[in-house]
Simulated scan of single mutants.
Amino acid sequence: MSLRIGILGAARIAPTALVKPASSHSSVTVGAVAARSLERAQAFAARHGIPRAHGSYEDLLADPDIDAVYNPLPNGLHGRWTRAALEAGKHVLCEKPFTANAAEAREIASLASSSDRVVMEAFHYRYHPLALRVEEIVASGELGELARVETAVCFPLPKFSDIRYDYALAGGATMDAGCYAVHMARIFGGGETPSVVSASARLRSPRVDRAMTAELRFPSGHTGRVTCSMWSSSVLRISAKVIGSKGSIAVFNPVAPQAYHRFRVDVAGTRRTEKFPRRASYAYQLDAFAAAVLEGAPVKTSAADAVETMTVLDEIYRAAGLPLREPS
């Protein structure tokens, strides 16, 4: 069996997230790409060795030789085109954040649950052995009772014309970087969905945040903090820390550990470090997507899981006094 994937949009992330890992995957081929113009799609296809190009997203969804779609469109378009793909009978690997807001996420999750198609949010880090190891250590009780989890995803994006700063496309630092920080806080914090105690934004424009910090409280009683930015004094900070009654885990670069990572566990006065494979997180993600479609394997970043993350993102925006993002 094989899985034939089409790309919705000639996005810059697509070669790294899908084309390259698919090139070494025995069961996956990238069969087509669509763009808003046929010329752009053809240029992208020629550059990356993709056999077919479509001049509209509708044409790709109607392609009978495509089993699934990868949706890396702007945030505000994720819901619309994931919905359209499901209605066309395609499986979907959708980039994060899953939708523009929690209400839209619930709608798509309901549609996904009533279909026999796989819908998976592309939190690639979640499938890397490093993330699985954090989850394993926390679940084992080695750290004792959880007290606090802190996650940060900060990187510089000084190009303020970038679509990630565009409110009309559901932009903002909390959407683009913060969705990682929130998701990691949920997963590394014992798998619970926290409530938002407070949030403070730094703005690029009246409705669009360039940085955000939020304090969290989890149902079991432990606390958390998420920090994210696309332009702030925290130029580059990608980290996670889990603190328990017996010890802690500190991770540098849990998002893309294949580039570089540090993983330290401190328990009862003893410190150890652990190392993980340099295989790309995107390759592990594609393994999981293919296994879900071809073998019925479970999906860790399901549409239902995405609803939980989007709920927290909405709460952060409300707590910061900003409007929720809306579908484009």
Rank of each mutant, 00 (worst) to 15 (best):
A62Q: 13
A34Q: 10
S113A: 14
A112T: 01
H25A: 12
R148Q: 13
A288S: 10
L3D: 03
S24K: 11
R279D: 02
S248L: 06
L86P: 01
R80A: 15
G189S: 03
G144Q: 02
L111V: 08
D63T: 13
L157Y: 11
V149C: 05
I66D: 07
A88H: 11
G296S: 09
A14L: 10
R325A: 02
T227N: 02
A41N: 01
D287H: 05
A306H: 06
T227V: 08
A17T: 10
V33A: 05
Y180W: 08
D305W: 13
S23E: 10
V138K: 06
L322A: 02
R202S: 15
S281I: 04
T213S: 10
G269N: 09
F98D: 03
L130Q: 00
K20M: 12
L203Y: 03
V267C: 09
P97M: 11
V208S: 00
L169H: 08
R210V: 04
T301C: 15
P298T: 05
G221A: 10
Y127W: 05
V255S: 03
V307Y: 04
I5T: 01
T223R: 08
S233L: 10
K96W: 07
A319L: 00
A280K: 05
N71Q: 11
C94I: 03
V251Q: 01
P206W: 08
V265D: 06
S161T: 15
A84M: 05
M175F: 13
P257Y: 00
S233K: 14
V69G: 08
R279K: 13
S245D: 02
R271H: 14
G244T: 01
E315R: 14
L86H: 06
L130Y: 06
H54L: 09
P97A: 13
G144R: 09
H128N: 06
P97G: 10
R133N: 05
H25K: 10
S229K: 06
M310G: 07
L157N: 15
A292P: 11
V299L: 08
A170C: 10
A256T: 06
T174Y: 01
I243A: 00
A297F: 12
R264Q: 13
F44A: 04
E308H: 14
A62G: 15
K159R: 15
L236A: 12
V92D: 02
